[in-house]
Computed example of a mutant assay.
Amino acid sequence: MKKMLKLFVAFAAMALLLSLVACGEAPQEKKAEEPAAEKAEAPKEEPKTIKAGFVYVSPVGDAGYSYAHDLGRKAVDALDYTTTAFVESVPEGADSERVIRNMARKGFDIIFTTSFGYMDPTIKVAKEFPEVDFMHCSGFKKAENVNNYFGRIYQSRYLTGMVSGAMTKTNKLGYVAAFPIPEVIRGINAFALGAREVNPDAEIRVVWTKTWYDPALEKDAAKSLLDAGCDVIAQHQDSPAPQEAAQEAGAYSVGYNSDMSSFAPKAHLTSAIWNWGPMYVKMIEQVKNGTWKGDQSMWWSMQDGVVDIAPMGPMVPEDVKAKVNARKAELKAGKDTIFAGPIKNQKGEVVIAEGTTAPDGDLLGMTWFVEGVVGTTE
């Protein structure tokens, strides 16, 4: 019995020992980890929509200055992060100030004021709305939130002058012009230089209408030039009325702003045209990216694609087209010698010396006519 008891105690001790050893080797039980609370995702920011407003001095219509600007607006509107709006036929002065201010109040991010006479109203409203960006076309006043922009349309004018100088029979070219400001004077001079390059006997007769858009007045001005013996009519006006007057008289014509061939197909030689789309899209991209800066000026060229000429009409001989296209290719390549000396004024005085080229500042402030232009800058 004792023997059995001893065996029992021995077995019990051994079992206890094995139990303790087993417990020591067993892996520590880990407390199950609670799943990490899912982080609430921050709401995704919607891409900022850029609101762009445009103020036009004439009706949009289907040709002319405001029509060309509106094609540029449509290029902006096609972007997936923009909305646009425009107001047309806004007179320069108090009315434009009211329209510009209303746009600023409605939360537009950038406002394009597209006429020279909107300059002072734009500057005034910009002071009231420093958070809004303003772009003024063709002016010279700037501010911290106001830039100027324009294109070297004088390059297109020069080419259209070459066409006109080659096509005239009377050597008298008529020019229906709006206001005697540097923008218009510069264009007339470039047209004259182009005409006289191919025809040194050509003279350019200017009639001022003192309006940007008045079809009846524009047409009457063209008729007065036709009556004076001009057989090509060019224009710095918004409507195709001068084109129509030329066709009715059996003369030739040169349009402006957009391709005006459909209005006078028998007369239309070509047009000096605008392509505002690339410039407008660039500005909107700057606003979106936060890189837009005020107090700047943009003056793009044919090389940048903002100015061009419309296809030349079927009445223009192939040799004339070839000469004009060769000069156009030079301009597109960045070779601009239009205002390279020697250039004389109406009095025969050399105002741009041989071996020099007029700087941009002089071109932007041009108030005199070159030799060959008949008319006054008043």
Score class of each variant (00 low, 15 high):
Pro278Tyr: 03
Leu20Tyr: 11
Gly53Trp: 10
Pro317Trp: 13
Tyr118Ala: 01
Glu318Ser: 13
Met283Leu: 14
Gly24Tyr: 15
Tyr118Gly: 01
Met1Tyr: 15
Ser253Ala: 15
Asp227Ala: 15
Ala329Gly: 11
Lys266Asp: 15
Met103Asn: 07
Phe369Pro: 05
Pro27Ser: 08
Glu244His: 00
Asp362Cys: 00
Ile123Tyr: 03
Pro27Cys: 09
Phe86Ala: 07
Gly24Cys: 12
Asp214Val: 06
Val176Tyr: 14
Ala322Arg: 15
His236Tyr: 13
Val132Asn: 04
Ile110Thr: 02
Phe191Trp: 14
Arg186Val: 01
Val184Trp: 05
Ala358Arg: 02
Glu29Phe: 03
Thr357Gln: 07
Asn102Ser: 12
Ser164Phe: 04
Asp336Gly: 02
Asp238Trp: 04
Asp133His: 14
Val146Phe: 00
Leu20Ser: 15
Asn289Arg: 11
Gly161Asp: 10
Cys23Ala: 14
Thr170Trp: 12
Gly61Ser: 09
Met283Asp: 10
His268Asn: 12
Asp62Glu: 11
Val320Asn: 10
Gly277Thr: 04
Trp368Ser: 01
Val370Thr: 10
Asp238Cys: 08
Trp300Thr: 08
Lys39Thr: 10
Asn345Arg: 02
Thr356Met: 00
Pro200Lys: 07
Ala241Val: 08
Gly348Phe: 02
Asn289Cys: 04
Val206Asp: 06
Tyr213Ile: 02
Leu226Ile: 15
Ala245Phe: 04
Ala329Cys: 09
Pro43Ile: 05
Ala37Tyr: 03
Gly61Thr: 05
Leu18Trp: 10
Ser164Pro: 11
Ala234His: 07
Val374Ile: 13
Val351Gln: 06
Val351Glu: 05
Gln28Trp: 05
Val125Leu: 00
Asp227Arg: 10
Tyr280Arg: 06
Tyr280Gly: 05
Leu79Tyr: 13
Glu248Trp: 02
Arg196Thr: 12
Val198Cys: 04
Glu218His: 06
Asp308Asn: 07
Glu354Ile: 00
Ala251Glu: 08
Met119Val: 08
Leu226Gly: 12
Asn148Val: 03
Thr377Pro: 05
Ala222Pro: 13
Met103Tyr: 15
Gly341Arg: 02
Asn189Tyr: 03
Asp362Gly: 01
Gly72Asp: 10
Ser115Tyr: 11
Thr356Val: 00
Lys6Gly: 09
Asp133Leu: 04
Pro359Trp: 00
Lys74Val: 09
Phe140Met: 06
Lys6Ala: 10
Gly294Asn: 07
Thr113Lys: 00
Ser224Leu: 12
Val146Arg: 05
Phe339His: 03
Glu183Met: 05
Leu7Lys: 13
Gln296Ile: 01
Ala68Lys: 09
Arg327Leu: 07
Glu248Ile: 03
Asn257Arg: 03
Gln155Val: 09
Gly313Leu: 05
Pro265Glu: 07
Val76Trp: 10
Ile181Lys: 14
Asp304Tyr: 08
Pro200Met: 05
Asp133Ser: 13
Glu34Gln: 11
Ala216Ile: 11
Gly64Cys: 06
Ile185Leu: 02
Ser19Val: 02
Val132Thr: 14
Glu218Ile: 09
Asp133Phe: 12
Gly375Tyr: 13
Pro311Trp: 10
Ala340Asp: 09
Asn275Gly: 01
Ala358Cys: 01
Ser258Met: 03
Ala37Gln: 14
Asp227Thr: 12
Glu371Ile: 01
Cys230Glu: 06
Gly165Asp: 07
Arg105Pro: 00
Ala40Asp: 07
